[in-house]
């Protein structure tokens, strides 16, 4: 009871903070829709981000994450909907809006024949950073991302992880108000991941709003991000980890058999069929009790997993499917 009250109070305080923060939102995206031929990538998605807030966009491949941030960055025109950045309508003031944003697309994009310094200074120049400030901006970002020793090395000679850091650095070298990182740690080593996460947190501490798409839930937890779950082009849930777990609590067991159960058997077990021969119970039954309930069917048990109330099970509860962390 005490724990529920404490959760309730914490949630109220989150809501209060959010109400204040939302008054100065950097990004307000409303009703975004986008289709590619017959495929509807976004179906009326909304997104708000406040200064200093890290928003993790969680979704499987094809959920609409990249389409959403491409629209926010002005790289794609939505079929309908609006995007305001710092009160500026993105599509009628693309130039002004571009100065406020930094985007690191999913694929590493740096000039291999140029040095790290030249890459950073070029993108700073492109974003309108003055000649006198470019060198210090590049040095600052290099320091933040552990690239200082490599400033005069050609980007093509860097390791994959170093290139990934430079790729991200090019997006934040002009200190944008809204930083968008599309799966920044894909293919990165552990050290690079840690460095990138630290940089994102540091940018947020400086007041930048960050949108971060990822498949890796441990990164989201490390970032202490506000989570937006997106599936089939729609935002299905939003909140801090605690809020989402509270709201979409899912616990129980998920088990897979070597043969399907008949409907009567599924009902007797109090389970639901999730996919193929995989079934889920959502009561507090211990594993031993489930095995006993399965009786002779337990001989065909291929696997059994306990569902804990965490972001992964929240995702499962909200979308009906798992977030494939291995996917990229």
């Amino acid at each position: 009871m005490a724990s529920k009250r404490s959760n309730f109070n914490r949630r109220k305080s989150f809501d209060a903070v959010r109400a204040v923060v939302n008054d100065v939102r950097v990004l307000v995206a409303r009703g975004l829709t986008k289709s590619y031929g017959d495929v509807q990538a976004l179906r009326g998605a909304d997104l708000d981000v406040a200064p200093g807030q890290i928003t993790a966009l969680l979704g499987r491949n094809g959920a609409g994450k990249t389409t959403m941030i491409s629209i926010i960055a002005g790289l794609l025109q939505p079929d309908s909907g609006s995007v305001e950045l710092g009160g500026i309508d993105v599509f009628s003031n693309l130039d002004a809006a571009a100065k406020l944003t930094g985007i690191a697309p999913q694929e590493t994009g740096v000039y291999g024949v140029l040095t790290v310094r030249e890459n950073l200074e070029f993108f700073a120049n492109l974003a309108g950073v003055g000649r006198t400030e470019r060198a210090s901006a590049a040095a600052e970002v290099a320091d933040q991302l552990g690239l200082t020793e490599l400033l005069d090395r050609r980007a093509g000679k860097l390791s994959g992880g170093e290139q990934r850091r430079l790729h991200t650095g090019c997006a934040l070298v002009h200190r944008p108000q809204l930083l968008m990182l599309d799966e920044p740690t894909v293919g990165a080593d552990v050290a690079t991941r840690a460095q990138l996460i630290e940089s994102v947190r540091s940018m947020a501490n400086e007041g930048a709003a960050v949108i971060y798409t990822t498949h890796y839930l441990n990164e989201v937890e490390a970032l202490d991000a506000d989570n937006v779950i997106i599936d089939a082009g729609q935002v299905l849930a939003r909140g801090t980890r605690e809020e989402l777990v509270e709201e979409h609590r899912l616990s129980g067991l998920e088990f897979t058999l070597d043969a399907p159960l008949d409907a009567a058997e599924v009902e007797r077990l109090g389970a639901t069929n999730t996919e193929g021969n995989t079934y889920r119970t959502t009561d507090d039954r211990p594993i031993g009790a489930l095995i006993a309930d399965l009786g002779s069917q337990s001989e065909g048990l291929l696997g059994i997993e306990s569902l804990r109330p965490d972001l992964e099970t929240v995702f499962l509860a909200v979308t009906g499917d798992r977030l494939d962390e291995g996917a990229s």
Binding site: L94, K99, P105, G109, V110, Y111, L126
Partner: peptide
């Protein structure tokens, strides 16, 4: 080929 085209476009040029 270098994946830098979108980065140029992001400048809103």
């Amino acid at each position: 080929g270098w994946n830098t085209w979108d980065r140029l476009r992001a400048s809103a040029a």
